[in-house]
Amino acid sequence: IRCIGVSNRDFVEGMSGGTWVDVVLEHGGCVTVMAQDKPTVDIELVTTTVSNMAEVRSYCYEASISDMASDSRCPTQGEAYLDKQSDTQYVCKRTLVDRGWGNGCGLFGKGSLVTCAKFTCSKKMTGKSIQPENLEYRIMLSVHGSQHSGMIVNDTGYETDENRAKVEVTPNSPRAEATLGGFGSLGLDCEPRTGLDFSDLYYLTMNNKHWLVHKEWFHDIPLPWHAGADTGTPHWNNKEALVEFKDAHAKRQTVVVLGSQEGAVHTALAGALEAEMDGAKGKLFSGHLKCRLKMDKLRLKGVSYSLCTAAFTFTKVPAETLHGTVTVEVQYAGTDGPCKIPVQMAVDMQTLTPVGRLITANPVITESTENSKMMLELDPPFGDSYIVIGVGDKKITHHWHRSGSTIGKAFEATVRGAKRMAVLGDTAWDFGSVGGVFNSLGKGIHQIFGAAFKSLFGGMSWFSQILIGTLLVWLGLNTKNGSISLTCLALGGVMIFLSTAVSA
């Protein structure tokens, strides 16, 4: 259960009878995928790494000078000259100064003066180019299975845990398959586009800190620079940016070097996208990844198990997540596992009318040892309800109150669905055939309105939902006002479609 501690969480529900669903994975976010007769899966884009970055340009932001020398000439005696002028490691300046009897010249006039100092770069920052084909995306998957609280967001041991898996995709191999043991396998067909235009970005490294910066900004930095990788004795261009020549006297000129420019660069980098280094690879934390999940090989585990009949206890007080759902960790005293956990939410304890829904599909106890633990997640209705676990006299209950409203949740879900469709863009549509167009249209309606429909009408039977949709269509056909007619027709059509397409 990876997503319960992530604030940016998206719930995606598969269409009834569908074998695939489109998701948008982004750094700092987590996606929970639910479908009829399929286990619930949490998917998170953990890291995006980039390798084989080529150094484009380096800037010196802290330097020192040494070996200063000057040469001067009297008027009419030609130009002052130093051998160091031809050495690229030196920074030199030529000027004219007033000369006369007082400073060793027989004539009054302008004399030539040249001053040089050896330039040494102490600290530099480097910009590297990123090729999209060198990106690698690491995705962690977790099935809502027989897990306890100690396994949440624990990325170790996934090789031997059938509840978890790690997959890596690249532009050259965008397809992967996550093996989930008894739950089958989940196929991923990803489109490795981060949403960032790397043709316009460089990877900047300064003092063990890293950013993504725009090329134009990078090339306009007014500091000494050299092109390409460091060859040991780089040729620094624009050395004068960190060196200041003071007022010249008759035979000498003082040279000083400016202080470190790291603070000024940090100020200019305010708002830039931060990154990290992992050995020789860069780690990015921006952008998104679009994936199509193929769920035809994914299956529920323990459908044929019998119900657990022994007593359950709450190991922890049920807690609310950031998303309005409830996490419950229970301990089973029996030894008759594997068995299914009898769990439901009810409005009252007399009729036990089921409300809400299970995020953890078909929760089971897989071990036959005593005191096995299991964590599950529920989506309670707004208002008061009861969490009921167990059967008969051994069942345990917990009162729950959820604040908020169904309308607010439906609106929030619609906005999130619209954002998801905007990110998917043209990849969500198939114009290759008439059937493809209608299929894409259905998927689009489901992406945007599916979660809201589930919130508003999830407790009704599909037949009642179709009746309401048919009534809206009838009202649309018999209303003389054009805008009201079109609105009723659209709402009725969407409702009829979703009542037959969205899983219960």
Rank of each mutant, 00 (worst) to 15 (best):
Q77R: 05
G383A: 01
D83G: 15
A227Q: 09
E262G: 10
D384H: 05
H399F: 00
D98Y: 02
A63T: 08
V303K: 00
T360C: 05
K209A: 04
T470R: 00
R2E: 08
D247E: 14
H235C: 02
R2D: 09
V153Q: 05
R73L: 05
I365G: 00
E168M: 04
V23L: 03
H401W: 14
L201C: 00
G104T: 03
I389D: 09
C121N: 05
L96H: 04
P380T: 01
P132D: 14
K93L: 01
D67T: 00
K38F: 08
G302N: 04
I389P: 10
Q447R: 00
P75F: 08
E136C: 15
S483Q: 15
Y202Q: 06
D426Q: 13
T156E: 11
P171R: 00
T48H: 04
T115K: 09
S368A: 15
C116R: 08
E216G: 08
I387K: 03
V388W: 00
E412P: 07
E240C: 01
L242Q: 05
K84I: 06
K394C: 02
R73W: 11
D426Y: 01
V114W: 05
E329V: 10
L456V: 13
T170R: 06
G493L: 08
E240H: 14
S72F: 06
S403N: 09
L188G: 03
R292P: 00
L113W: 07
S86H: 04
H214F: 09
V41S: 00
G459V: 02
N163T: 12
L376R: 00
F119Y: 12
V502W: 12
V355N: 00
L491A: 13
N172L: 15
H219C: 03
E62V: 09
N134A: 04
F453I: 12
M53T: 08
T360I: 12
Q77M: 13
T47G: 15
M206K: 11
K409P: 00
D197I: 09
K118T: 02
W236Q: 06
G383L: 01
A250F: 08
I4V: 15
A69R: 14
V50K: 04
H210A: 01
A250L: 02
L475W: 15
G334C: 04
F314K: 02
A117F: 03
Y81C: 07
E412W: 12
L424V: 01
C121P: 02
D155I: 11
T327D: 04
S385R: 12
T88M: 10
K239P: 10
T369H: 00
A270W: 13
G5S: 02
A270M: 13
S70A: 11
G287M: 02
K166R: 13
H148L: 10
V330E: 08
G334E: 12
V24P: 03
D220N: 14
K283A: 12
D155A: 13
S16C: 03
T233I: 09
L196N: 02
V91D: 05
E367C: 12
R164Y: 01
I445F: 05
A490N: 12
L307V: 13
P174K: 08
R99G: 10
T47V: 14
G282C: 15
T479H: 13
S304T: 15
Y137F: 15
K124S: 12
S306W: 00
S286L: 05
I43R: 03
A418D: 13
A410Q: 07
Y158H: 10
M295T: 10
L196I: 15
T126E: 12
S503M: 14
F218T: 04
G436P: 00
F453L: 09
V41P: 00
D430I: 05
G150W: 14
A501N: 10
L307N: 01
K340R: 15
V391C: 14
G432L: 00
G450R: 07
S485C: 15
H226P: 00
A451S: 14
A268D: 03
S499A: 15
F497T: 07
L141W: 11
K316F: 03
C339T: 05
G109F: 08
A410V: 13
Q261K: 04
S86L: 14
W217V: 04
D42S: 01
E136R: 00
G432V: 02
I468E: 03
T88R: 09
